[in-house]
């Protein structure tokens, strides 16, 4: 896929955080949350990012949303480098990429009515919109996410968790964005409600042609939603490829372990034995970051860091043995 045809193209994204000082006069150590991540997203499709806590997937979401500046690298949206834009120009672009968060309790201001919350992105995107038109847009969005019209005058705490996540979707869609970054959008929801929200997201994708950057720790959810999947480990993409293929035949030992760790419903009650990934120590600098936990690690893995390389058409993996 060429960079020109992609909606989002990230190139060498790196993000360091400075940790609190060690001791009173000690240095402030750096934590590399994201380490040279590159990928491209095709319009109208879903790009899934899988990883465990600390893998850098939420940092990636914030960088793509230009809510933080990277320590290195670029994010191009429709070919434009977001971090090269002036603050005003960036603000004007924001209507084209919106975000949905994990916790629907925390992502809606408890002091505001639903109408205000859903219309908030319009405050900046279309400040001159007459009040009546705003109302109509909110009503449209509520209908689109399957909520009754009278929800507009309610407060967030008067709605259930699933309804609140629908509100978050309505807010994200109100400016008709091209991209929605969804960071664990269904993880806080009950199973039955999770299915409702996933169905809604897929229906909205069909009717409104939005592109999703879908971030989750849940492999089954990502496999269900995403066309393309990137697996992250310690701030890097370790494997990437078409969702179905990648999860059916994982090439990287970490992806294999992730897939194997998912409990299998079909084997319920049989006490199936499986390989369990051990905890490892800190990786050796210059070696593969996964080596300390890897069941296949050899001497070479501790001395030579494998690059993310093409292993088959459309598939990449960062492993010497892939």
């Amino acid at each position: 896929m060429s960079a020109a045809a992609s909606l989002v193209a990230a190139e060498g994204l790196t993000r360091d955080y400075r940790l609190p000082r060690v001791g009173v006069l000690g240095a402030r150590p750096r934590l590399r949350a994201l380490d040279g991540v590159s990928f491209a997203m095709s319009p109208g499709r879903s790009f899934g990012v899988v990883g465990e806590s600390g893998s850098g997937k939420s940092t990636l979401a914030r960088l793509v949303m230009a809510l933080e500046r990277p320590s290195g690298g670029t994010v191009r949206f429709n070919g434009e480098d977001l971090f090269a834009l002036s603050p005003d120009a960036l603000r004007a672009r924001r209507r084209f990429f919106q975000m949905v968060f994990q916790d629907p309790n925390g992502s809606l201001d408890p002091r505001r009515r639903i109408e205000w919350i859903v219309a908030e992105p319009l405050d900046v995107a279309e400040p001159d919109l007459p009040q009546a038109d705003r109302r109509a847009r909110v009503a449209d969005m509520l209908a689109a996410v399957g909520l009754p019209e009278d929800a507009a005058q309610r407060f967030p705490h008067e709605l259930s968790g699933g309804q609140r996540q629908r509100i978050a979707l309505a807010r994200a869609l109100v400016t008709a964005p091209a991209l929605i970054v969804a960071d664990e959008p269904v993880s806080a929801l009950d199973v039955s409600v999770q299915a409702q929200v996933l169905n809604l997201m897929m229906q909205l994708q069909e009717t409104r042609a939005v592109t999703y950057l879908f971030i989750s720790h849940n492999l089954a959810v990502v496999e269900h939603v995403a066309d393309e999947v990137a697996v992250m480990y310690r701030g890097r993409i370790v494997e990437q490829g078409p969702a179905v293929e990648l999860l059916a035949r994982p090439a990287h030992p970490y992806t294999q372990a992730l897939v194997d760790a998912v409990p299998d419903l079909a084997a319920a009650g049989t006490r199936r034995r499986r390989t369990v990934l051990r905890d490892g120590g800190e990786p050796v600098p210059g070696g593969c970051p996964f080596a300390p936990r890897c069941p296949r690690a050899e001497a070479r893995c501790r001395s030579e860091d494998p690059a993310l390389r093409a292993i088959a058409p459309g598939r990449r993996a960062a492993c010497h043995f892939a």
């Binding site: 199973v191 039955s192 409600v193 999770q194 299915a195 409702q196 996933l198 169905n199 897929m202 229906q203 089954a220 959810v221 496999e223 269900h224 939603v225 995403a226 066309d227 969702a243 179905v244 419903l265």
Partner: peptide, 16 residues
């Protein structure tokens, strides 16, 4: 309602 290996991309989940 569970997305599983059989629930392919694009197929709607049987939400309650």
């Amino acid at each position: 309602a569970l997305p599983d290996r059989l629930a392919r991309k694009g197929r709607r989940l049987a939400a309650i």
